[in-house]
């Protein structure tokens, strides 16, 4: 693959990546400490209350993250929310190509902006499920012993199903990340220009020229420098 472009484009700021990874840690902690209650062979993890404690501890950063994000990066938050819920014609066009895209083909995809239609849908779904899982979790936590059998069952079902939704979204998210080698976006903040051209051509084209292409030593590839944050993630 000698044609791989050495040029890198910044996708995420340090703060965005930090919040993302705190989110990953708290989400996975919540997921597995929760699964301990659903999956009988794992129930030994729940005995004694260890998983419950972990669940409650992890719930706090998990719920606080969007707030922290909104405070630290108000512009990006607004942008993300608007983008996630706005679908133009090329997005619908993109969805038509989604089956092929899932199988590794980007040919024929309409050029996409900073977020492609799938990412928009992913984010929109995540926002909604996040709200659902947080509210139902809060009710289960605070309402313990006062919900009654019906209240407990209904709240827990909502909680379980929202978490099913989030898990499937996460699996898809990880899938596309590794299918299209986008992991460096969250590791170093940068992606290769080649990736950006395949997946976010419109965004790439619109980047200011001094910011879009950061070209560190090609041999270091995406690993090296953090880069200064004035560049492209905005």
């Amino acid at each position: 693959m000698s044609s791989e472009s050495p040029r890198l484009v910044q996708r995420y700021l340090r703060a965005q990546r930090f919040i993302h990874w705190i989110g990953v840690a708290s989400f996975l902690t919540l997921l597995f400490s929760g699964i301990a209650l659903l999956f009988p062979p794992l129930s030994f993890l729940a005995a004694g209350g260890l998983s419950r404690l972990m669940h409650q501890i992890a719930a706090i950063p998990f719920v606080a993250l969007p707030l922290v994000y909104a405070v630290l990066l108000p512009r990006q938050t607004k942008e993300l929310l608007i983008e996630s819920f706005t679908y133009a014609r090329e997005d619908w066009e993109w969805f038509k190509h989604m089956p092929a895209y899932m199988l590794g083909r980007t040919r024929g995809l309409p050029p996409q902006g900073r977020l492609n239609a799938g990412q928009k849908l992913h984010h929109a779904g995540t926002f909604l499920m996040f709200g659902t899982v947080a509210v139902s979790g809060f009710v289960l936590w605070v309402g313990k012993g006062r919900l009654g059998a019906n209240g407990l069952a209904c709240t827990a079902m909502v909680h379980d199903l929202a978490m099913l939704g989030l898990s499937v979204l996460m699996i898809g998210h990880v899938y596309f990340t590794f299918l299209y080698d986008a992991f460096s976006a969250m590791r170093t903040g940068f992606v290769t220009e080649e990736y950006a051209r395949m997946e976010h051509a419109k965004w790439l084209a619109a980047l200011p020229s001094e910011g879009f292409a950061f070209a560190p030593d090609a041999s270091k590839s995406a690993e090296g420098s953090e880069g200064d944050t004035k560049s492209a993630a905005e």
Partner: peptide, 13 residues
């Protein structure tokens, strides 16, 4: 020793 004090039983009974 198996109890996690989740409290489900207190609501379900």
């Amino acid at each position: 020793e198996k109890c996690t004090a989740c409290g489900y039983c207190t609501d379900a009974c």
